[in-house]
Each structure stands twice: as C-alpha cells, then as structure tokens.
Simulated assay, not measured.
Amino acid sequence: MIWFLFIIPGLIAAYVIFARPVLRALPALKRFYAEADTFWGKVWALFGRSATVAWSLVVAASSVAFDYVDPLATLLGAPDFKNQVMTLLKDNPQYLGYFAMLVSGITIVARLRSIAKVAK
C-alpha cells in the first residue's frame, strides 16, 4: 500500500511535464484547456459545468470511500471504527434518515439550478 505514495506523485509529475503540453496542443482539446486553465476551472469543466453532475460524483465517491473505512481506520490506529459507526447507526436510525434527506435536498437544489440555467 505504501508504494502508492511514490507512484501518485510520479504520475502527477509525468502528466504536468509530458502529457499536458501534448494534450493542450491538440485541436480537439484547445477549447477545454482555454476554459479550464486553473485547477478549479478544470474541475468545473470536467463536471460539464453542472452542479448535478458534480454532486452525483461526490456522492458516488463517498460511497466508494466507505469501502475503505476499515483499512484506513486500522492504518490510523482505530481498527473498530467501522463497527462503532454501525453501532451508532443501529442505535440511532434517524441519522440515516437525516443523511438521506440532506442528500435529497442537495440533489434537488443542484438539479433545479441546472434546470434554471437551461431555461435562461
């Protein structure tokens, strides 16, 4: 697992030094790189300039990250963290309802924002 600490910075450096200039020169990607010259500009362009898409990717990423709670908790010295969370949710099921209402509310707001942008 520790080898990721060396590979990821190397991949980022390879992208910045080698791949980005080549991709930026391609005619098909010129518009993308013109719109997304900053980091947040790139992130926004990758989401298709849509709050709905951004939110759905955040929810999907958080659900995938939940699979890695056990290994990360063990690595950080709390091997029973997932069990503690499950016990908390079992004892207080209303927390799941609150979370579902929060996700639904944000999704509705993001979708209405996207619909309003299209209607203009």
Rank of each mutant, 00 (worst) to 15 (best):
W3S: 07
W3P: 01
W3Y: 07
W3I: 13
W3L: 15
F6I: 11
F6V: 05
I8S: 10
I8N: 11
I8H: 08
P9H: 07
G10K: 02
L11E: 14
L11V: 09
I12D: 04
A13N: 02
Y15G: 02
Y15E: 01
Y15A: 00
V16W: 12
V16S: 14
V16R: 15
I17P: 01
A19W: 04
A19I: 10
A19P: 03
A19R: 02
A19E: 06
R20C: 00
V22F: 06
V22T: 04
R24E: 00
R24C: 00
L26H: 03
L26F: 00
L26E: 02
P27C: 05
A28I: 07
A28T: 08
A28S: 15
L29M: 11
L29A: 06
L29Q: 05
L29R: 04
K30Y: 00
R31H: 11
R31P: 10
Y33G: 01
Y33R: 03
A36H: 08
A36T: 09
D37P: 05
T38Y: 01
F39T: 06
F39C: 02
W40M: 15
G41Y: 00
G41E: 01
G41S: 00
G41Q: 01
K42V: 12
K42E: 12
V43A: 11
W44Y: 13
A45E: 08
A45C: 05
L46N: 14
F47M: 12
G48M: 06
S50Y: 06
S50A: 10
S50M: 05
A51R: 10
A51T: 09
A54P: 04
W55F: 15
S56N: 12
S56C: 13
S56H: 11
L57M: 15
V58M: 14
V59R: 07
V59Y: 08
A61E: 03
S62V: 14
F66N: 01
D67E: 09
V69A: 06
D70M: 14
D70N: 15
D70A: 14
P71N: 07
P71A: 03
A73Q: 04
T74C: 08
T74R: 11
L75T: 08
L75P: 03
L75F: 14
L75S: 10
L75I: 05
G77P: 05
G77N: 04
G77K: 07
A78G: 02
P79M: 12
P79N: 10
P79F: 12
P79Q: 10
F81G: 05
F81Y: 12
F81K: 04
K82M: 13
N83Y: 09
N83Q: 13
N83P: 09
N83F: 10
N83K: 13
V85Q: 08
V85K: 06
M86H: 09
T87M: 11
D91V: 14
N92K: 06
N92T: 11
N92Q: 10
P93N: 01
P93M: 00
Q94C: 09
Q94T: 12
Y95L: 14
Y95S: 03
L96E: 12
L96F: 09
G97C: 06
Y98V: 13
Y98P: 01
A100T: 06
M101Q: 14
M101T: 13
S104E: 12
G105H: 05
I106W: 10
I106R: 07
T107S: 15
I108K: 01
V109P: 00
V109E: 01
L112E: 12
L112S: 02
L112F: 13
S114E: 14
S114W: 03
S114L: 03
K117S: 13
K117D: 08
K117H: 11
K117F: 11
K120R: 15
